[in-house]
Amino acid sequence: MNLNYNTDNNLINVLQDVSFEVDYKETISVVGESGSGKTSLIMLIGGLEKASSGKIEFKDFEISSLKEDEISEIRRKDIGIVFQSCYLIPNYTAIENVSLALEINKIKDPINKAKEILDKFGLGNRLNNLPSQLSGGEQQRVAIARSIVMKPELILADEPTGNLDSENSELISNILFDYVKEENASLIMVTHDNKLANLSKRIIKIKDGKIE
């Protein structure tokens, strides 16, 4: 697939002829310099951007040909996204941020299920705290809980430990890799952290929009 932008009569090739497959249970780290196209890659996979050409297939769907609402429907259930900045909804408590993902999927007893996962992540005593009352590591754990509470088959993570200290980074990476193992999911993770990247089964290196 390819991704190009037109700016002031200049064509910028963000991604060129990028092609790879991801198996179930596979963990992939995408590494590369800033501006190489790593984030754009996972944006395309998550259906948050449209490829200029080429195809992205996820399970039986061809994401690149679906409408926005149809992609949203897939994201709801099967794709979890973790951002570098946690992006919790500021006026929702920890438990409300997590239960949001369950409620829009009409999952029964969302509050207890959200509580369960937050307990598992060591946040049992922070359930009713607003994001502003949580530390950076706690916020990221809530964000990951929200991303995986629907047990998605694919996790897209963009620098999930980028804003964290080493202790919290380890905690977060353990959560992500344990989840992949337990739920037979796949993980595509953009990272600058070599230590974290080395935990993945495969590393894809991108330079100037191309896979090296």
Binding site: G46, L48, E68, D69, S72, E73, I74, R75, R76, K77, I81, F83, Y87, L88, I89, P90, N91, L100, A101, I104, N105, R146, S147
Partner: peptide
């Protein structure tokens, strides 16, 4: 703005 983006990211339709 960011809360709406988060809602969209986790699959809530723009119409909703």
């Amino acid at each position: 703005n960011s809360s709406i983006a988060v809602q969209k990211a986790i699959g809530v339709f723009s119409g909703n």
